[in-house]
Design a protein around this nucleic acid. Structure first.
Lengths: 208, 208
DNA sequence: GTCTATATACAGATAGAC
DNA sequence: GTCTATCTGTATATAGAC
């Protein structure tokens, strides 16, 4: 966390991390303020309420994912696009094992509470689902695309939940292999695990 | 909630419901006391701490699942056993759409926090996973049983998460059909959606 | 814009009368 | 065993000096 960054940005980044690690309800504004190295009282200059911080965090994640999906969309082969997403789930597996999927965690926790936070979190997952659907459509699965996308995202989310529950990255690795095999069978083509760019933006990784 | 029941039992039942609906952290002892119609101060006669109530709730769920799995184990055909479990996920779908899977929710929320509660919740999911594994083994999938069970439970959990996130029971129905098809393909046998006994114990349903 | 001090509310937990 | 009253800590949020 660089020191010179704008405080608002620091607060959002701190909240993003802490909410992933502890969940939204258990993360206090004091926690966030401390992590961002901002005095507690000053937090309210940037965010009126805790909910407002939550919104900012989810919007931040949404923006990161929009970029990510856009960049993957530039990959020539839709099948490789999908596998790139699957492979992406294997990044930061230790973190995922400890704290679960940031998106799935938000949807699970906030979904029960309703309200704008819940809706924003749902939209985040919806965007990923929709992107996947487009890839399947690009592969020629016109009618079956929604079902296939549902299947894929659902599997990934389930795999994260088990990985987190049993604190074992092996679960995810195994499951990603299964997904690769499934995509091969489905498309009747060879699928290689694509190399994932490590260098670019380490800090924006999935599970931080 | 019958009035004459023992208070301890009433408290556990109230906590079970509320924790499912609101999550553990957001559910207060006052909530539980009110729902169980027990004065707040009296709660501490039965449970030393909030964590103790949490333990009791998870143990209750574990007990219910142990019974459920044992009863399903008496079904002649292992494939039908598995499909009975899948079909069970379709019970109380409206509740599941509103509040998610009780087990998955606990694992997600408590998994981040560590401690005995987290371990108990994980064991609950582990038991279901293990039972599924046994069924696949009984079907002749010796080596592949762990992977298949992982696949199945993972899919079911993912399906619940999406159902909950998008508040749409359709997701689960669709996904259950996919799972049936998957099991058919896998075993090369016709699989029927088994009839689920509605009459027996409505109150112990999955998602209450 | 920044930060200290504090108000307000409510959580988990306890004391002790009955 | 039961329940009222209350302690104590801590969370969100605000007031107001600088």
């Amino acid at each position: 966390m660089p020191r010179k960054t704008d405080k608002r940005v620091r607060l959002i980044e701190a909240a993003k991390t802490l909410i992933h690690q502890q969940g939204f309800n258990l993360t206090t504004l004091a926690d966030i303020a401390q992590e961002a190295d901002v005095p507690l009282g000053n937090v309210y200059y940037y965010f009126k309420t805790k909910e407002a911080i939550g919104m900012a965090v989810i919007e931040k994640r949404a923006g990161e994912w929009a970029e990510r999906l856009a960049s993957w969309s530039e990959i020539a082969d839709p099948l490789t696009r999908l596998m790139t997403m699957v492979k992406y789930g294997l990044e930061n597996l230790e973190v995922t094992a400890r704290f679960g999927c940031p998106i799935g965690g938000l949807c699970q926790e906030l979904g029960k509470q309703g309200g704008p936070l819940s809706d924003l979190a749902a939209k985040l997952l919806h965007d990923v689902l929709q992107w996947s659907e487009e890839q399947f459509r690009a592969l020629g699965f016109e009618d079956k695309a929604p079902g296939l996308a549902l299947n894929l995202i659902s599997s990934i989310q389930g795999m994260f939940l088990l990985t987190h529950t049993f604190k074992d990255p092996k679960f995810a690795q195994r499951q990603c292999e299964e997904l690769r095999a499934w995509l091969e069978l489905l498309t009747n083509r060879k699928v290689q695990m694509p190399e994932v760019a490590h260098a670019t933006n380490r800090e924006e990784a999935f599970a931080d």
